[in-house]
Amino acid sequence: MTYLLQQLLNGLQLGSIYALIALGYTMVYGILQMINFAHGDLFMVGAFALFVAASVLGLPFVPSLLLAMIATAAIGVLIERLAYRPLRSAPRVSAIITALGVGLFLENLVNALSPYPKHVPTLLSNHSWVLAGVTISSIQIWIIVLAGILVLGLDLLVHRTKVGMAMRAISWDRTTAPLMGVPVNAVISLTFGIGAALGAAAGVFYALAYPIIDPYMGVMVGWKAFISAVVGGIGSIRGAVLGGLILGAVEILVAAFLPSTGRDLVAFALLLVLLVLRPHGILGRPRPVKA
């Protein structure tokens, strides 16, 4: 029982990271019906931005986190402006291929700048406590609490503010939104920026837990976060969080109780089974036809 609780706690930590990345996929999909396959690499960019902030500039944790989020947000906005916007009315497959290309570009750019894996310096002292037999570390608390705050903040933004209202309106009908006075391109840029910033936060948290970072770290994690978004119901904010937490828990539990090489197999099998049973994901709804 203690062992199970321990694993669930570890799963919550990994799941929080998947959830933050999944939010970026789901936000972009929600507003443009496009899968931004470069998003996993923005997670990697976030981790490298943390390395630059902490190691090169010597900043402490919180300023490093903020700098990584802001810098990655700027890159996310730039990618949309330069690579995706010109293709907005092109066939959807063009945008998907472009997104894959942008992802490869980011990996190779970082690889060219930093050919060897980097070690992110220790930014937070790591204490551990034992509660009822379950070991909990201060880094776990940081990750889970900060991820929770970011998720709640995003949920409030999307459901309680006018900007969030505009995002949801654009997602329903991009051509009518300007008739309400909504500057559609600015709102789309903001959506990419926020998604990238959340992905960067996930990269920072990941680097806290696993401090060796390399330019390809975003590939597998990115795919899994994408699966999380689809499992939860792509386009749904709460679905992305739920999907991330489920995938994190499943992965850790599989590794704990089965041969750990089965971890990724189970993750991808979960996607396939769910897509057959519930093509729209757990919280996703089939899009009603517009009147």
Binding site: K162, M165, A166, A169, T176, L179, M180, G181, V182
Partner: peptide
């Protein structure tokens, strides 16, 4: 617009509020 252009995924109050952007 033709076809009314209602945002079905927003509430009635939100539709009205959005127009005050």
């Amino acid at each position: 617009p033709e076809g009314r252009g209602i945002f079905s995924n927003l509430t009635v109050a939100e539709n009205l509020s959005l127009a005050t952007w």
